[in-house]
């Protein structure tokens, strides 16, 4: 079966972000960018399904600026067979991404679509669920285990109190949680080979999807700074401070 994986180019998770002085957004100039960590897990899961003989083809897709081709090349180096970039320089919201992906699903007819549960920039946690709604497919979100059995997929989900397993009819949409797998690193020969794998470029207009925002970003601020604390010398002093100064005991 064919597996579609959506990936996003985001700021590297180790970078400490800066808010722009005019509070219009976060400053992304000259900042290290990378594939969203949850998307790496999605690619890894798709590649493992291929290695197990469950998947026959893995297609990676992204919506973003030209530079996001880097993340598609990474996906190809990790084992995806071909890639599709839907190029736009706009700030594209989850709903518009889901609409574009729904068109790709319609065109490619994958049996399984794997996305990360959330992107670490906007922290929305929406696109997979929205794609499921738009395609009318079932969803297995926050997956920590995925098992394809015949025309169904069993997805074990990380929920607040523990784990929940649901059985979904295929085709289905799955979003990855951190513990689904440990993504591999791309090897140099695979990175070289990835440069020759097919990468198509389209635009939102090719799909007739309007990407204009319906949520405007009015302001971005730094969170309130915590005022510097003190170091105490002993357990006695700590207990005393908590009782008499902070009054939380």
């Amino acid at each position: 079966m064919k597996v579609l994986v959506a990936v996003k180019r985001v700021i590297d998770y180790n970078v400490k972000i800066r808010v722009k002085a005019d509070h219009s957004d976060v400053d992304l100039t000259n900042v290290k960018m990378a594939m969203n960590p949850f998307c790496e897990i999605a690619v890894e899961e798709a590649v493992r399904l291929k290695e197990k003989g469950v998947a026959t083809e893995v297609v990676a897709v992204t919506v973003g600026p030209k530079a996001s081709q880097e993340q598609l090349r990474t996906a190809l180096a990790l084992g995806a067979d071909r890639a599709l970039q839907i190029e736009t320089d706009e700030r594209v919201e989850s709903l518009a991404v889901a609409k574009l992906l729904a068109k790709v699903v319609d065109e490619e007819q994958p049996q399984l679509v794997i996305l990360g549960k959330q992107a670490i920039d906007t922290d929305n946690n929406q696109t997979g669920q929205m794609l499921a709604a738009l395609t009318g497919l079932p969803q297995g979100t926050f997956a920590s285990a995925v098992a394809v059995e015949g025309d169904k997929v069993n997805v074990t989900r990380e929920i607040d109190g523990g784990l929940q397993t649901v059985a979904l009819s295929l085709p289905a949409i799955v979003t990855t949680d951190l513990r689904l797998n440990e993504p591999r690193y791309a090897k140099l020969p695979d990175i070289m080979k990835a440069k020759k794998k097919p990468l198509d470029v389209k635009t939102p207009a090719d799909y007739g999807v309007e990407v204009a925002s319906r949520v405007s970003l009015l302001k971005v601020e730094s969170p309130a700074e915590r005022k510097g604390g003190i170091k105490v010398a002993s357990v006695d002093e700590l207990v005393d401070k908590l009782k008499n100064e902070a009054k939380v005991l």
């Binding site: 670490i120 405007s216 601020e221 969170p223």
Partner: peptide, 16 residues
């Protein structure tokens, strides 16, 4: 709402 792991706070307005 917080964005970037709570390292920035965004004020957003919905037109829907």
């Amino acid at each position: 709402r917080p964005i970037y792991a709570g390292n920035a706070i965004a004020t957003v307005q919905s037109e829907d």
